[in-house]
Computed example of a mutant assay.
Amino acid sequence: MTSPVGLHRVLAPRGVLPQAADRLDSRPEIGPDEVRVRVERLNLDAASFRQLATKHAGDGESVRAEVLAIIEARGKMHNPVTGSGGMLIGTVDEVGPESSLGLKPGDRVATLVSLTLTPLKITDGLRSWDGLSEQVPCDGHAILFGRSIAAVLPDDLPAELALAVFDVCGAPALTDRVVRRYGHPTVAVIGGAGKSGCLSLAAARRAGARTVGVVPTTAERDLLSKAGLANAVALADARDPVALSRAVTEALGGPADVTVVCVDVPGCEHGAILSTADGGTVIFFSMATSFPAAALGAEGLAADVTMLIGNGYAPGHADFALDLLRGVPAVRDLFAARLAAD
Rank of each mutant, 00 (worst) to 15 (best):
L174E: 14
E34G: 08
G58Q: 06
A272R: 02
D93A: 13
L24S: 12
L11H: 02
I122D: 07
R205Q: 10
L235Y: 11
R246Y: 01
G183H: 09
A341Y: 08
E134L: 04
L24P: 07
E61P: 00
L322D: 06
L223K: 11
V168K: 12
S133Q: 05
I149M: 12
A53V: 10
V63I: 13
R50H: 14
V260L: 06
V282Y: 06
A293N: 13
V136M: 12
D155L: 10
V37A: 08
A173D: 04
P185T: 06
L17R: 15
A295C: 08
V152L: 03
F49E: 04
D93Y: 09
H141G: 09
H141Y: 11
V328A: 03
L11R: 14
I30D: 09
V95K: 10
D124Y: 11
L126N: 06
E269Q: 14
R239F: 00
T276A: 04
A73Q: 13
R338A: 13
V113C: 03
R239K: 13
T218I: 12
Y313E: 12
Y182D: 00
K76V: 06
V248Y: 00
R332K: 14
L115V: 04
V263M: 08
G31T: 09
S48P: 05
G102L: 11
L42G: 10
G197S: 09
A318D: 14
A341E: 14
